[in-house]
Amino acid sequence: MSKEEKKELIMKTALNLFAKRGFYNTTIADIAKEMGMSVGNMYNYFPSKESLAKELLTYSSKRFGNEIKKINEMDIHSREKIKKIVKLYFETAINEPELIDYFMRVYLSNKEIFANGCEGMLCVSAFVTEIMLFFEEGVKRKELKNQDFFAAFGLFMGYIGGLAFLNKEGILTKSLSEYIEPVSENIYNALKA
C-alpha cells in the first residue's frame, strides 16, 4: 500500500470515529488502534489530530467538488443539474452518512478546530467553487435568477443539509431518496429566473 493510500485509509477510519464519537472524544490512539498501527507510526502520516481533521475536510470537499464539476460540465438545464446535485448529496447521506455527519457534527459545530488553517473558504473551496460555477452558468443561461450568491447558496445547502439531518434523526416519514424529486423541484422553483 502506498503512503497516499494508507493516508486515505487513516482518514476514512478517523472520519468514522469523529462522526460517531465527536472530535474531542476521539484520540489519535483510538484511530491507531482501529487501524492496527502504533501511535508513533500514525504521526508519520499526520502531525496532529487537528491536522487530520483539516485534511479530512479538504479531502471531502474535493470529493464533492469533483462530483459537482462533472455535473457542471454536462450540457443540461439547471433544473436537471439541481436534481443531480440533490441526488448526489442524499445518496452520500445514505451510503456514507459519516461524511455528512462529520461535516455537521465536527466541522460546523467545532469551528475552533478549524480556525487556524481552514478559516473561511480555505478548506472547502473546491466544493464552494463548483457551486459558484453552477449558479453562474445557470444565470448566464437565463435559467436562474441573478441574485446574491449567499442568499442562493444558503437556500440550497441549508435545505438539503436540513433534510439529511432530519433523516439522520429518524424524523422523516419517507426514505431520503424519495425526497430527491420534491426537494429538487422546490429548490428550482425558488431559484429559477
Binding site: G120, M121, T129
Partner: peptide, 14 residues
Amino acid sequence: KRSYLTLSGIAKSL
C-alpha cells in the same frame, strides 16, 4: 474562472 474563484476565495478567507 474555476482557478480565479478558487484563488479569490482563498485570498478573501485569509
